[in-house]
């Protein structure tokens, strides 16, 4: 009985839906504010994302007749569910995530792909040429960043010798952050580049390039459904950042400052914010690449980084 209650609280309150939604929306709000300042303007207030969410939820839902299908309606929810599920596998307060499994890294990799696949399905079923071409570009993009991302994770796994994220965090608590390990530094950079593509940020915002294909796969979504998409996207931001933190930046650590114990979640929040701000900076200093250029970039430069790292880890003990 206790386990069930625990599970429900974990998935709905902390670190599940409620917690990540609040933090995710806030982080994207901060991202937008900082973007504004980087572009020398005031930018929206940091709680703007909450207001946008409320606005979208209260708006009318208009679905074009060509898009009316079960798939079109269900994919936002599936994607939200998948991304919240990832959160349960991430170490947030301590090295132990809310849900424990033997090889949770594999589960996470799978679950992280579900939103991407949902976006594609939504785009293809929307019956709009923009949605379809956005989804088409997304397929290519997925093929490019996913390989790099998995390679980088494999490098970490090979170093730690475990497929469990908890073990990775414990390992780092003893041996120091993996990003400081010179063998894994290229992998960390590759993972950051892949995360930039996963989060659809410039220079890899190709699937939703607004000057070319409106809003890509999500063009035909409106009202509450779009709100769910946004929520899923905002949560994805913090989830991907959290995964990077757990993999390379030591995961949540508890500190004792002046006798009081700072819980690991504070550390987690600070580190994820730092990663989000890093991606914000990256997205403000570049132009968008073309899809073929992005593909080439991932498969040559980024993949090379990850492979170098992997070889180093395997060759240099």
């Amino acid at each position: 009985m206790m386990e069930v209650v625990d599970f429900v609280i974990n998935s709905l309150v902390f670190p599940g839906l409620l917690f990540v939604s609040l933090v995710g929306l806030l982080y994207v709000g901060i991202d937008r504010k900082v973007t504004g300042h980087m572009q020398h303007r005031i930018g929206p207030p940091i709680w703007q994302e909450y207001l946008d969410m409320g606005k979208l939820l209260s708006k009318e839902d208009i679905t074009p007749s060509a898009a009316q299908s079960f798939v079109f309606n269900i994919v936002p929810l599936v994607s939200l569910g998948a991304i919240v599920a990832v959160m349960l596998f991430l170490p947030v307060t301590s090295a132990q995530p809310a849900l424990i499994s033997v090889a949770d890294l594999i589960v996470i990799i799978y679950l992280l792909n579900i939103p991407a696949i949902c976006v594609m399905l939504g785009g293809y079923s929307s019956g709009s040429p923009f949605g379809a071409s956005g989804a088409g570009r997304y397929v290519v993009q997925l093929l490019s960043y996913e390989f790099v991302f998995i390679l980088a994770i494999i490098a970490v796994v090979a170093r730690v010798g475990s497929l469990s994220l908890g073990t990775v965090v414990v390992y780092q608590a003893q041996q120091g952050w993996l990003v400081l390990d010179w063998r894994l530094l290229p992998a960390a950079i590759a993972a950051l580049i892949a995360a930039q593509g996963k989060l659809l940020r410039v220079p890899f915002d190709i699937p939703e390039a607004e000057s070319e294909i409106v809003h890509g796969a999500l063009t035909e979504y409106s009202g509450p459904k779009l709100a769910i998409w946004r929520l899923a996207y905002d949560i994805e931001t913090i989830v991907v950042a959290g995964l990077l933190v757990a993999l390379f930046f030591g995961g949540p650590t508890t500190y004792v400052i002046g006798g009081t114990q700072i819980p690991g979640v504070v550390d987690f929040l600070i580190k994820t914010l730092a990663i989000v701000l890093l991606t914000t900076t990256l997205r403000n200093i570049m132009a968008r690449l073309r899809i073929d250029q992005a593909l080439k970039f991932y498969w040559s430069f980024a993949a090379l980084l990850a492979i170098i790292s992997l070889v180093l880890v395997l060759a240099v003990p």
């Binding site: 504004g36 300042h37 303007r41 005031i42």
Partner: peptide
């Protein structure tokens, strides 16, 4: 990227837009 120093400087400067 060439624009990086400018971007970082802008964060510290007063924005040009007004409310």
């Amino acid at each position: 990227p060439r624009i990086l120093p400018q971007v970082l400087k802008n964060v510290l400067r007063k924005p040009v837009t007004v409310k």
